[in-house]
Design a protein around this nucleic acid. Structure first.
Lengths: 343, 343
DNA sequence: CTGAAAGCGCTTACAG
DNA sequence: CTGAAAGCGCTTACAG
């Protein structure tokens, strides 16, 4: 199937008998060009349905108006809402977005980052894989391109980072559980020192401390690859403890939902016997019965904010060496539903 | 913050005292170049961490190895799995992917398609918005770029289309309901003639016909913007019918889940009194109680297949005018769960 | 085996 | 007000 080739400045110039320069300038509304010429050129361009070749433009200015995004997994609902935030903001700013997945593999992540470099994107938005240990690779990227971390971050990388206020959010969740009378509050968290898990764990500890509730090591459950199934397993263990918890705070919704499923199966009353709170307000949280109390993370806003800071970095003159990286916390909010609602 | 500029062929050439041409050829392992020279150049390139500027390469060959994807909404789980299929296959083929959302707006869709053109993508993967009426815009794109439709398609657009075998899938679902003894089977479908909704409706009608079950207009429910809430509303109406349905086939999972919620609320036994079957095997379907019977749509495979056909079209010599568009049906499968499991 | 030159489509400093 | 020329980084037909 033959495809029409794109109209170029050259063709317009030839048809009109102007030089390429004049046509280019006319189309960019340059002061030097007479109104008459502009009119003629614009008219012709429209007639031929001229579209500037962004490549040539970008290639020349080495500003492609394209940004690269690397996330562990696109099809996680929360991730996809962050990407929507990125896409929406990108559009208003005239940027295109190349998306890629690292699938939680460090090698893949590096490979994707290098592709982004080769592609000469203007900047990179990165959400780290679990166990990104070798920071050096990322520092190398940082030497060459503006880069902003979001959601899955790592404090020792010297760049702007956009995160949820995980510690505060967890604190609020625990405080809420205490307020409804719970004292033996279990936490389901990740083993590896993921930034988010650690933040939430800190919030948990702080809340217990502030309310003078002793910490019971038996109520601290850690797991790798946190998931619904892991939530089920941990809940199974939790309910067989001699001294059962009276509440479970899981650091992800799916883990919390796994817990609810087990509690339901064992006819343990939620929230009376054991209350449950999750994290991230996934769509699942209103499907499960009882509906899950959780922390709402504004994914769209996180994505948008990350891109906002990235574009700022891209578009400012990079001639000052002062380190402007900062950590931006996005406010989340606790949503109380039936799984922890006691009057 | 100053960024390192990228190493170019020119720099390598200067350092080594070769011409740019020689360096270029050495790096591309051209036969003309002596092994010795190749070794020197490769060594230096590695040392300087040279990365070809894909832009310059692509710009010259007008083959950017980049494809554009336009979908109504990225954060729909099924959509995101299709995109994952696209990303994975793109990677194996050395393509990058620009993603954008039409948000179910025709204007936005056109705008996105035009951006893709300007960007000179090698090809476009499109999943249509609801009510894409003006086919002309899409035909114009089709004149200029290879384009493949997937999932949300429209038969009158002359291009390759990748779809689910919706009619057969719906047929299987209805047949299954008949097999467990159901006779008054309601369908919850879309009002507007969306391709997918129509296909599924056809399957429904055919199954009833094949099994000599009379069609009852009262059991055919149509709605715009099908959703969980709409599922609730329709179910509410359905259960107040003088002659209640004994099964509900909803053409989306969320709609089916809305129905289940209402049935649960009214203490109607699922599946004994009313069985429910959904469509698409969203993650929700195993969260809801009872777990939802549904049609599994292999999103990953659909995405991959769409890209496969697109790349084929991109990479074949386009000098033959013969119309090679085809419609490819991807096989889905019925998953029976508790919402329709009767021994 | 290697190099000089043209060209992909565009922008812009320099001349007139 | 307009044009010729250089250049962004690369590849490749043409010459030697």
């Amino acid at each position: 199937m033959k495809k029409k080739s794109n109209v170029t400045l050259k063709e317009i110039a030839k048809i009109l008998g102007f030089s390429i320069s004049t046509v280019s300038r006319a189309l960019r509304d340059h002061v030097d060009i007479s109104d008459e010429t502009k009119a003629i050129v614009e008219q012709k361009a429209k007639e031929l349905n001229y579209m500037p070749n962004m490549f040539a433009q970008g290639f020349r200015s080495s500003r492609m108006h394209i940004i690269g995004v690397v996330v562990p997994k696109l099809s996680h609902y929360f991730t996809s809402t962050m990407i929507e935030g990125i896409l929406d903001y990108a559009e208003t700013k005239g940027y295109r977005v190349i998306v890629s997945e690292s699938k939680n593999s460090v090698e893949k992540q590096n490979q994707m980052l290098n592709t982004m470099l080769q592609f000469n994107v203007d900047g990179i938005l990165l959400s780290l894989t679990r166990k990104t240990a070798n920071v050096q690779d990322i520092l190398n990227i940082l030497d060459r391109k503006p880069l902003v971390l979001f959601d899955k971050v790592m404090s020792k990388i010297p760049c702007t980072q956009i995160i949820i206020d995980g510690k505060q959010a967890a604190y609020n969740a625990i405080e809420h559980l205490i307020n409804i009378g719970k004292r033996r509050i279990a936490i389901f968290k990740e083993t590896e020192n993921s930034f988010n898990s650690e933040q939430r764990f800190e919030g948990y500890l702080k809340a217990l401390k502030d309310y003078n509730i002793p910490i019971d090591e038996k109520l601290i459950f850690s797991t790798e690859d946190i998931s619904l199934e892991k939530g089920e397993q941990l809940a199974q263990i939790a309910i067989t403890l001699k001294q059962r918890p009276d509440a479970i705070f899981a650091i992800t919704d799916s883990c919390a939902i796994g817990a609810i499923k087990i509690l339901n199966k064992n006819n343990i009353k939620i929230p009376e016997e054991i209350a449950v709170v999750g994290f991230s307000n996934s769509a699942h949280s209103t499907i499960i019965e009882p509906n899950l109390s959780t922390i709402n993370q504004p994914g769209h806003l996180i994505g948008k904010t990350a891109l906002k800071y990235l574009i700022e970095e891209i578009e400012t003159d990079n001639n000052n060496d002062f380190q402007s990286s900062k950590t931006v916390e996005i406010k989340s909010s606790l949503i109380v539903r039936d799984s922890s609602f006691i009057v």
